[in-house]
Design a protein around this nucleic acid. Structure first.
Lengths: 386, 386
DNA sequence: GGGAGTTAGGATGATCGCCGAACAAAGGTG
DNA sequence: CACCTTTGTTCGGCGATCATCCTAACTCCC
C-alpha cells in the first residue's frame, strides 16, 4: 500500500494512477489516508488541460525532517534535510573522531538541536538519521567493526544512542557508500550500476549495483585502497607494499612532494600546488590518476558499470586526475565494457557524504513498511482522524 | 500467488504454512489449484510425529522437463533435467561453435529430441531451455554480442529458434554465469555473495551478488581475463600485454610448456603433465595460481564475497592451483574480507554449465509470473478441471 | 484396546484491498 | 449556453486471505 511516494517527484492523483496502473479510486483512497495522517499536502490547483484542473500533491516537507551526519577523521558535518530531499541547513566543525564516540556523538547531538532550532523545526519532526563514518560498519546493527582510524568506536551502538535521544532510527554506513548513494540518487538517477571512487587521503569505492548499495558479505566491499598496482614497492601503512593508496592517495602524494622540498602536509595542499601550476604536483597527480585508472580498469572489466564518478579531495583537480584515469581505463578495459562507460567528476561537492547519509534516512522513512507502521499508529500529529 | 514453489525443496501443506506465514486454509486452497493443474503431486503419507501424518507434496517431475545447453568452443553438451533439478540425461558431442548458429542449433535440436525420447518424456513436457555460450550475451534478448570466438553468432536470435521448434522460452547467458549459478544453487545454497572463477583455456568469472547473477550494465561483468597482472609483458590475443589470461590461462601455459619441449596443446595437456608429476608443469600451475590470486585479491577487496569457487579445466589440479591462489589472496586482501572467506574447488564437475543453464530455465518456469500464466491458461494437461 | 492428546487438512463466514462504473466537480470550447 | 474533457469521489462487487471451527488420522499411555 504505497508506491505512491513517487509524490516525492510531485504528482497528482490522476498521474499516480497512470504511473502505477492502479485504479483512480484506489489512489484517491490511499492519498486520503496519507493526507489525513499528515504525510501529504494538497496544494493549489494546477492549470487545466481542457478538463477539470488537477490538485497537486506534495510531501508535507515542513513537518518531516531527516538528518545526515558526515563523520570524517577530523571533521563533523551535520545536514538537515526535509523529507523531500531539500537541504535546509548544514554545519561543519573540526572534530577529531579519535576523541571517541561519546564526545563526538554529543557534539552531533548539540549541532543537530541547533540546526532544528534555527530552521524552526520541532524535534518531533525528525524522522530518521543517517550517519556516514570513515571505516567499516556492520550496516544491520549500525556498529563500526575494527575501524582503523576510529579508536574507541569498535562495536559502539550508534543507533541506540540516537534512539535514546530522538526516538528515531539511525542508519550507519561507510562514508564512501553514502557518497555513492548521493551521487547516484541526485546526479545519475537513471544509472543502475555506478562506482563512486573517492580519492582523498585514502582511496575507497562505493558500489551501486542494480540501483542499490552493494555492501558485500561483511560490509567491507569497495575497500580498494590496498589493491596492488603493478610491481611497485611503496610501503603502505597496512604493512603491504605497492598499495594503490600508498601510490595515489593524497597522504602519499603530499609526502612525496614534501620530499621534493615542497610544503605539503595533506591532499588539500597537493590540490593547492596543482592549482598554482606546480609542475611536480601536476605530474604527480596525473601519475596518480594513471595508477587509479589501472586498478579501475580491472574493476570495470569485472563489474561492468555504466558510470564511474570520481570524488574526494583530489577530484578538485579532476582535469589532471581524470586524464590519467581515463587514459589507463580506456587502454586496458574491454571495449564492450567501456563502450558506453562514462567517467566523470563528482557533482555533489562537499556535502556529498552528509546528504547521502540523509538520503539513507529518507529512504528508510519513506519505505512502505515504515509508512504502514506510521499509518497504523494513527499518524503523527494528524489534524483530523485518529 | 505462489511462493509455494518451495515444494521444490519438498514440503507438506503445514510446513509451507509455517514457512510462509500464510494461513493453513490459504495454503490448502492454492495447493489444490496446483494439483488440479498438474504442477504438484500428492505422494504417500509421511511418518506421523504424534498426530495425523502429513501428506507429502512434490513437484510433478515426470511431466515437467527442462533442458540445459552448454556450448563450448569445440563441444556441445545437452542436459535434460526434471523441474525438480534432477539430471535425467546428458550427452556431449564434439562440435565447433564456429560452424555457426544454424548448424550448431540444429545439432542441439536433434540431441534434445533424442534425450527426450530416451527418457520417455514427450516434447510437450519441456517447459524451458537454458543456454550457456562462450561469449558475451545480452541476456534480455538472448543474443550474443560480438562474441570473439563465435563467428556468425553476432545478434543471432537464439530464443526465437527454440520458440519456433518447441514453443518454449529459451534463456541465454554467458557460460561462466551459468556455472556460477549451478555452483551457488547446488553446492552453496546459503551463500549470497559468490565468485566463480573459471580457469580454462581462458579465464572468466561469474558473479553472484545478493543471491542473484550480476551481469552488469552491458552484461559483460566478470570479464577478468584481461586484467593486467603486475608489470608482466606477455602478449595477449586481445592486443594488450600482461593480461591474466596470457599469463595463467590454459592455452598460455600449454604454449610455454611446448617451448620447454613438452607435449602440450591445451589446458588438458597441462593437467595431464601435472598429474604425471612433471616439475615444470607443477611449478607453472602454481605460478599461474599466484597470478590468478593476485587479481582475485583485488576483487575480494572490492566485492567482498563469502565464497570463491575455482573451476574450469585447470581446477582438476586444484591442489597446485589453489595453493597459489590462496597464497596470493591471503597475503594481499584485507583481513575483514578474508576472515570468513572460503576459496574452494568447484564441486559441480563437467556438467556445471549445462546444469546451470537448466537451472536458469527451471527458475524461469517456476517464477510466479510463469506459474500464474499457466494456471490462468487452464493448466497444461490437467486430468480434471479446466 | 480405547480414550486423551496431537497434528494435518478442509470448510465457512468475515474482512480487506482493489477495481469498475456511475456520478459530481470544474474547467475548457464552439 | 450546451457539450466535451479531465479530475476526483462514491458505491457495489469481486477475489484473496484469514480466523475459526470441524474432521481425519495417528501416537501414547493407562
Amino acid at each position: 500500500m504505497l508506491a505512491l511516494i513517487s509524490a516525492g517527484s510531485a504528482a497528482t492523483r490522476a498521474e499516480i494512477a497512470r504511473l502505477t496502473g492502479l485504479a483512480r479510486s484506489t489512489v484517491s483512497q490511499r492519498v486520503d489516508a496519507l493526507i489525513a495522517h499528515g504525510f501529504v499536502d494538497e496544494t493549489a490547483d494546477a492549470g487545466s488541460t481542457g478538463g477539470r484542473p488537477p490538485r497537486r500533491l506534495s510531501l508535507r516537507t515542513r513537518e518531516h525532517a531527516v538528518a545526515g551526519v558526515d563523520l570524517g577523521a577530523s571533521h563533523c558535518r551535520v545536514a538537515l534535510l526535509d523529507i523531500g530531499g531539500s537541504l535546509l541547513a548544514v554545519r561543519e566543525d573540526p572534530l577529531k573522531i579519535a576523541d571517541g564516540p561519546r564526545a563526538v556523538l554529543a557534539h552531533v547531538d548539540r549541532t543537530l538541536r541547533t540546526l532544528l532550532a534555527e530552521t524552526g523545526r520541532g524535534q518531533h519532526t525528525l524522522r530518521a538519521i543517517g550517519v556516514g563514518v570513515p571505516g567499516p560498519v556492520e550496516f544491520s546493527t549500525g556498529r563500526p567493526v575494527d575501524p582503523p582510524i576510529m579508536p574507541g568506536w569498535h562495536q559502539f551502538p550508534i543507533p541506540e544512542y540516537f534512539a535514546e535521544h530522538y526516538g528515531v532510527r539511525a542508519l550507519v554506513d561507510n562514508d564512501v557508500n553514502v557518497m555513492a548513494l548521493a551521487e547516484q540518487r541526485q546526479a545519475f538517477p537513471g544509472t543502475r550500476y555506478l562506482l563512486y571512487l573517492k580519492v582523498g587521503t585514502g582511496i575507497g569505492c562505493g558500489i551501486i549495483a542494480d540501483g542499490r548499495l552493494h555492501r558485500g558479505a561483511q560490509g567491507s566491499a569497495g575497500d580498494i585502497g590496498h589493491i596492488r598496482v603493478g610491481e611497485r614497492e611503496e610501503l603502505c601503512r597496512c604493512g603491504n607494499s605497492g598499495c594503490l593508496e600508498a601510490i595515489a592517495g593524497g597522504a602519499a602524494l603530499a609526502e612525496r612532494l614534501t620530499e621534493l622540498g615542497l610544503e605539503a602536509r595533506s591532499g588539500l595542499d597537493v590540490v593547492r600546488l596543482v592549482q598554482e601550476g606546480n609542475r611536480d604536483a601536476v605530474r604527480m597527480v596525473r601519475e596518480a590518476g594513471r595508477a587509479v585508472g589501472e586498478v579501475l580498469s580491472g574493476l570495470v572489466n569485472f563489474f561492468n558499470p555504466e558510470t564511474v564518478v570520481v570524488g574526494g579531495a583530489l577530484a578538485a583537480v579532476h582535469d589532471q586526475l581524470l586524464a590519467g584515469v581515463r587514459e589507463a581505463v580506456y587502454r586496458r578495459s574491454h571495449p564492450l565494457a567501456t563502450h558506453v562507460l562514462r567517467i566523470e567528476p563528482s557533482r555533489t561537492g562537499e556535502n556529498a557524504a552528509a546528504v547521502g547519509a540523509a538520503i539513507l534516512g529518507i529512504e528508510h522513512a519513506l519505505s512502505p513498511a515504515q509508512v504502514d507502521r506510521a499509518l497504523l499508529q494513527g499518524g503523527l500529529k494528524s489534524p483530523a482522524i485518529g
